[in-house]
Amino acid sequence: MIEDLFAIEQSAQGTSPVHRCDARVKLLITLAVIITVVAFPYTTAVYRLGAAILLFFAALWTASGLSPTIYLKRFLLILPFGFFLIFFQIFFENPHYTAFHPLFALPLGIAVYAESVEFASILAVKFLACISFIILLSSTTTMQGMLEGAGRLGMPPEFTLVLGMMVRYLFLFARIYLRVKASLETRCFDAFDRSLPYRYRLQTLAYTIGTIFLRSFEQGERTYTSMRCRGYGKDSHLFIRKKPLLMSEWVFLATSLTLVPAAAVTAWLL
């Protein structure tokens, strides 16, 4: 999982038009899509809206030049979190419906209703549309770029400072973890190797976790001392320079913020 952190940041450093687009534009478009999809009524009309949103996403992903495999890998990582929430909807009587028609019955008195299956499919479309744009945002915008974009959009400086420190030392911690992992591999240690005694594996993992914790604590102390020496205090903020949007970015933002609500209205009226 930690190795994927570097892969995500690497793919976000591309040179396509989508990568070069200002982070504020991509953040606002992603928020517009999420708000529109979530606020859309729970009816089958969401299928038409989902198709339009996913078509828009496919166009942006193609323009980014990223491989579809990257999207599939990251979507599959997120899928378990939404799948179980959506799947279990088919076993409950959702309050959005007044009448229920059972499709088939299961043991222990559990029934699967046609309306519940329909509601689960609506949730699946909403989940797919929102997650797709989040993946697009993270795959085409670096973490520092998103942080600066959020700061320019008005995020409180206290938040940008804390998040900026977290982003910086998240990668530092990941490198420490990878070095510890490499040292274990060079010593032919595998936590899942059943030929090794179970107690020995637990003991080694405990020592490893303790080592990482101590290194993180010591790094935090060194970082705090160095920041205090540089004048860090309660009034310190992350410096974000002003950056005006290009005319092409304004046009793209205005077009996108018009198309997304228009697609929702059209899907509702058809």
Rank of each mutant, 00 (worst) to 15 (best):
T186R: 15
M165D: 07
G109E: 01
S121F: 11
C130D: 13
I122N: 02
G145M: 06
L106H: 10
A124E: 10
V117F: 09
F213L: 07
R215C: 01
F159D: 05
I122K: 00
R179S: 07
E115P: 08
L178D: 15
S183T: 09
L108P: 05
F171A: 12
V112A: 03
R168C: 02
G109A: 07
Q219S: 11
I131E: 02
I135K: 00
S116M: 01
M166N: 09
L170C: 12
M165V: 10
G151K: 00
L106R: 09
A129T: 03
L103A: 11
F171E: 09
E158V: 15
A105C: 14
M166Y: 08
T186Q: 03
K181S: 08
H101C: 09
C130S: 13
F189A: 14
F189R: 02
F217Y: 09
I176L: 05
L196K: 01
G109Y: 01
S195K: 13
G109C: 06
G145N: 05
A174H: 03
Y198M: 05
L205H: 00
A129K: 01
L108T: 06
G154M: 14
V180I: 14
V117I: 02
T186K: 14
E148S: 05
R175M: 15
T140C: 06
I212N: 00
M155R: 11
P107S: 14
S216Y: 07
A129M: 09
E218P: 03
M166W: 12
A182V: 12
Y200A: 04
A191N: 10
I134Y: 06
F119Y: 13
E148W: 01
A206M: 05
E185V: 12
C188N: 14
A114G: 10
L103P: 10
T208P: 06
Y113A: 04
L205K: 00
A129S: 11
F104V: 11
C188I: 07
L106S: 08
L147F: 13
R175Y: 15
F127R: 09
S121D: 05
V125G: 03
Y200D: 03
V162K: 11
L172N: 04
S138V: 05
V180P: 00
T186F: 15
L153N: 15
C188E: 07
